Amino acid sequence: MTTFKLIINGKTLKGEITIEAVDAAEKEKIFKQYANDNGIDGEWTYDDATKTFTVTE
């Protein structure tokens, strides 16, 4: 398992979430669903070196 981080830079929601997953593709799906469930629609980036997804509205 690898630890992945999501950084949220939303208009109404900001924060960080850290979760373990098998791979980045699995985690991306979970993070995007979390963002969608919380009304966050923005630009996504991924840094493989730090295993960090960022979504910015």
Rank of each mutant, 00 (worst) to 15 (best):
residue 1 M to T: 12
residue 1 M to I: 10
residue 1 M to N: 11
residue 2 T to D: 06
residue 2 T to N: 06
residue 3 T to K: 13
residue 3 T to F: 13
residue 4 F to H: 09
residue 4 F to I: 15
residue 4 F to Y: 14
residue 5 K to M: 07
residue 5 K to G: 01
residue 5 K to P: 07
residue 5 K to F: 14
residue 6 L to K: 00
residue 6 L to V: 14
residue 6 L to S: 00
residue 7 I to N: 02
residue 7 I to W: 03
residue 7 I to P: 00
residue 8 I to M: 04
residue 9 N to P: 00
residue 9 N to A: 07
residue 9 N to M: 09
residue 9 N to T: 06
residue 10 G to Q: 03
residue 10 G to D: 02
residue 11 K to F: 11
residue 11 K to G: 06
residue 11 K to T: 09
residue 11 K to P: 05
residue 11 K to C: 15
residue 12 T to M: 11
residue 12 T to P: 04
residue 12 T to S: 08
residue 12 T to F: 12
residue 12 T to A: 07
residue 12 T to D: 06
residue 13 L to W: 15
residue 13 L to I: 13
residue 13 L to G: 10
residue 14 K to G: 04
residue 14 K to P: 07
residue 14 K to N: 08
residue 14 K to T: 10
residue 14 K to F: 13
residue 15 G to M: 15
residue 15 G to Q: 14
residue 16 E to M: 11
residue 16 E to D: 04
residue 16 E to V: 13
residue 16 E to F: 14
residue 17 I to P: 00
residue 17 I to N: 00
residue 17 I to C: 15
residue 18 T to H: 09
residue 18 T to K: 06
residue 18 T to I: 12
residue 19 I to G: 08
residue 19 I to V: 06
residue 20 E to W: 14
residue 20 E to R: 11
residue 21 A to E: 05
residue 21 A to Y: 07
residue 21 A to R: 05
residue 22 V to H: 10
residue 23 D to T: 11
residue 23 D to E: 06
residue 24 A to K: 10
residue 24 A to Q: 12
residue 24 A to R: 09
residue 24 A to S: 12
residue 24 A to M: 12
residue 24 A to I: 13
residue 25 A to D: 10
residue 25 A to V: 09
residue 25 A to F: 12
residue 25 A to M: 09
residue 25 A to I: 11
residue 25 A to E: 09
residue 25 A to C: 11
residue 25 A to N: 08
residue 26 E to I: 08
residue 26 E to R: 03
residue 26 E to D: 14
residue 27 K to H: 13
residue 27 K to A: 15
residue 27 K to E: 09
residue 27 K to N: 12
residue 27 K to F: 15
residue 27 K to D: 02
residue 28 E to P: 02
residue 28 E to L: 14
residue 29 K to F: 10
residue 29 K to H: 09
residue 30 I to A: 06
residue 30 I to F: 12
residue 30 I to K: 04
residue 30 I to W: 14
residue 30 I to R: 02
residue 30 I to L: 09
residue 31 F to P: 01
residue 31 F to K: 01
residue 31 F to R: 01
residue 32 K to H: 07
residue 32 K to E: 08
residue 32 K to I: 11
residue 34 Y to L: 13
residue 34 Y to V: 05
residue 34 Y to H: 01
residue 35 A to Y: 06
residue 35 A to I: 13
residue 35 A to K: 02
residue 36 N to G: 07
residue 36 N to L: 14
residue 36 N to R: 14
residue 36 N to Y: 14
residue 36 N to V: 12
residue 37 D to K: 07
residue 38 N to K: 09
residue 39 G to R: 04
residue 39 G to F: 06
residue 39 G to H: 06
residue 40 I to L: 07
residue 40 I to P: 01
residue 40 I to N: 01
residue 40 I to K: 01
residue 40 I to S: 02
residue 40 I to W: 13
residue 40 I to F: 11
residue 40 I to V: 06
residue 41 D to R: 11
residue 41 D to M: 11
residue 41 D to V: 13
residue 42 G to I: 10
residue 43 E to A: 09
residue 43 E to T: 10
residue 43 E to C: 14
residue 43 E to M: 09
residue 43 E to S: 07
residue 44 W to K: 00
residue 44 W to S: 00
residue 45 T to R: 03
residue 45 T to C: 08
residue 46 Y to F: 04
residue 46 Y to E: 00
residue 46 Y to W: 06
residue 46 Y to N: 00
residue 46 Y to Q: 00
residue 47 D to L: 00
residue 47 D to P: 00
residue 47 D to C: 05
residue 48 D to R: 03
residue 48 D to V: 05
residue 48 D to A: 09
residue 48 D to S: 07
residue 49 A to R: 05
residue 50 T to N: 05
residue 50 T to L: 04
residue 51 K to F: 11
residue 51 K to V: 06
residue 51 K to N: 09
residue 51 K to W: 11
residue 51 K to T: 02
residue 51 K to I: 09
residue 52 T to E: 02
residue 52 T to K: 01
residue 52 T to N: 01
residue 53 F to Q: 01
residue 53 F to N: 02
residue 54 T to L: 05
residue 54 T to P: 00
residue 55 V to I: 10
residue 55 V to C: 11
residue 56 T to E: 04
residue 56 T to S: 06
residue 56 T to F: 08
residue 56 T to H: 07
residue 56 T to V: 09
residue 57 E to T: 14
residue 57 E to H: 10
